[in-house]
Nucleic acid binder design. Structure first.
Lengths: 354, 354
DNA sequence: CTGTTAGCGCATTCAG
DNA sequence: CTGAATGCGCTAACAG
């Protein structure tokens, strides 16, 4: 079942079949119909490998994440994958656990070379040479989280996230707050944790409060990381009455630590996370929510736009852009919002105030 | 950077380069070394599209799941993906939400046709004609959960799962037990829920107990499904003192329902799940654990074996099978085991016994 | 053990 | 608006 069969059945040449099926111009409507009918009747499917080889394009987009598991990355991936599928593009996810992995990949390893037309980089900081190298190889770029100048970016206002958390805790009456968040060797390290902390601290400052170094426990962005960090905070002699966890998953670990210490979240100690993980409603965790799947989707969309722009003006059929000349949206800032639940509450009357 | 460049630099023909790089026999060691060196120096990467087109094989494996989210499917996928990556194979996951989707896919839609060498079918019941159709198209098959005769299968002893749950609850002293599980319109329906229920009931019977129809609440295998099912059970006038939830995710929903009713799991009502989801430790859920990622990995491995067997004896390099004649492992039954935590306990003294 | 010769199925010039 | 010819980069028989 090749393009040739369709051509014969439709009584035209293969070139015409190719044009007709891809929605390219310069095909008479009647001819196009005839070709479509023939293709339908034969249940013809173009061979993607042949198409790629001939066109010199891979028809696939990749998303590179620091880890394959974890709620955040999974959801970004899911969002991106949905739009890729929607566009009929192949989709590939690549996990780079370490900076070394990342460099190896970007240096032109077998996962990218000749295998992708564009990459969505999620929370990955890469050097200018590496960016240049990708561009040189004709690979389009979009980012989520960490940004790269000159390429589409999707993210949230991370300072606002920290600010919302701080305002909520302080609003409840807490004067001694702590934080658990991203440490340096963490893949997610970089702008995001720094911005959240900055927002958190500056909001505290506006309330006349400061974040004591002893009340900050770093850890990896996982349940276990959160558990360990919380453990350190809870064993401190003068522990905070409320804690801001930089992710819900860390907060889950923190909840386990609370249980270990016989502390009731929301009354003995307040805890607020970030993400609005679906599991957060199970443990009734107060959090700052964000729509991560949308971030992935937006980034993928921007990437695909960039790709079709690179490909000499974008002849991708069906890409119904009302105005092709319109400047593409190069930045998307997603919404965030406080989700009130039961792990936060006023400090206990007896608790040490500052 | 084509194979030709490598050939020139190594002073051999392209055919030799192809053979050398793929680890095929009939290449002098010295030649092979020379070719590898040249390839290295030029950072040559074979174009997968060209290789596929020429070889007539796609070099990709697919896994088809009823849903893309959900702990169970995600973990199967993760396990399968790991071995695919390990084998240097492309990987594709396909979600078929409805039976209609499934039939469309298997009928030869664009996701499979010319795009995959084998599929792992997860909890998907398909007809004999559909199996035959796949085989006819040269697509290898392996299954997880629901089985297909003549094709490798991976799963667990689901009757044992039900049995373990029943024995645990009865052992704690419960005489009035209920169940929340898979309903018919559910994608996961079929053998698995039936077997778990059968094992549960027969173990109860051995203890002289029966599962009353009024104490069984069906629902989809999600948190929401579990919450609704549990809700129905809890509002019953004569409610069970212990409940077996067929998945941890449903159990999470059930826990929410308990909270809504002001019931303390483990004392007011006992709840046991299945899976040992990572969040189960957060809510301290007693459960029957299984290693799902391993299931995915085993299935993928079996699939790849089957593929290389189809491909005229398997010339896949590095597939170090000690004895090529050895019959392949066509069935793998994973371990399951009770994980004791705090959501189960003895019935309250005052609770109605039967 | 190695080189030569044909395509794989499709997208593209370039002429009509 | 359409068709004929060319080649994408590689693998797979065949001969040597």
């Amino acid at each position: 079942m090749t393009i040739e069969d369709v051509a014969v059945h439709a009584g035209v040449s293969v070139a015409t079949v190719s044009r007709a099926l891809r929605g390219l111009p310069n095909v008479a409507d009647s001819t196009r119909r005839r070709v479509h009918d023939a293709a339908e009747r034969l249940t013809y499917r173009p061979d993607p490998a042949a198409a790629r080889l001939a066109a010199g394009t891979t028809g696939t987009v990749s998303v590179v994440v620091p880890a394959l598991d974890g709620w955040y990355f999974s959801n970004v991936v899911a969002g991106a994958e949905a739009v890729a599928a929607d566009e009929g593009l192949e989709f590939q996810v690549i996990g780079v656990a370490s900076p070394a992995d990342r460099d190896r990949l970007l240096a032109g390893a077998r996962r990218l070379e000749r295998r992708t037309d564009g990459v969505v980089l999620v929370d990955l900081a890469i050097g200018a040479e590496q960016v240049a190298s990708l561009v040189a190889r004709g690979i389009a770029i979009a980012t989520v989280g960490t940004r790269i100048d000159g390429h589409p970016w999707v993210g949230i206002d991370d300072r606002l996230v920290g600010r919302l958390a701080a305002d909520h805790l302080v609003g409840l009456g807490h004067r001694h707050v702590g934080m658990i968040g991203g440490s340096s060797p963490d893949p997610m390290s970089g702008e995001v944790p720094r911005a959240r902390r900055a927002g958190f601290e500056s909001a505290l400052a506006e309330h006349g409060l400061a974040l004591d170094a002893a009340d900050v426990a770093d850890g990896v962005f996982t349940m276990e990381g959160g558990r360990e960090a919380m453990e350190r905070l809870l064993t401190s002699s003068d522990r905070p009455t409320a804690i801001f966890s930089m992710s819900d998953e860390m907060a889950f670990g923190a909840l386990m630590a609370c249980r270990d210490h016989g502390l009731e979240p929301g009354s003995d100690v307040s805890l607020i996370g970030v993400d609005d993980h679906e599991f957060s409603q199970v443990v009734d965790l107060t959090t700052v929510g964000q729509d991560v799947a949308e971030h992935g989707a937006r980034a993928a969309r921007a990437l695909i736009d960039a790709m079709s722009r690179t490909t000499s003006g974008g002849d991708r059929a069906r890409s119904a852009s009302p105005a092709p000349d319109e400047a593409p949206e190069e930045r998307f800032v997603g919404d965030v919002g406080l989700v009130l639940r039961s792990t936060t509450g006023p400090p206990r009357p007896g608790s040490a105030d500052r």
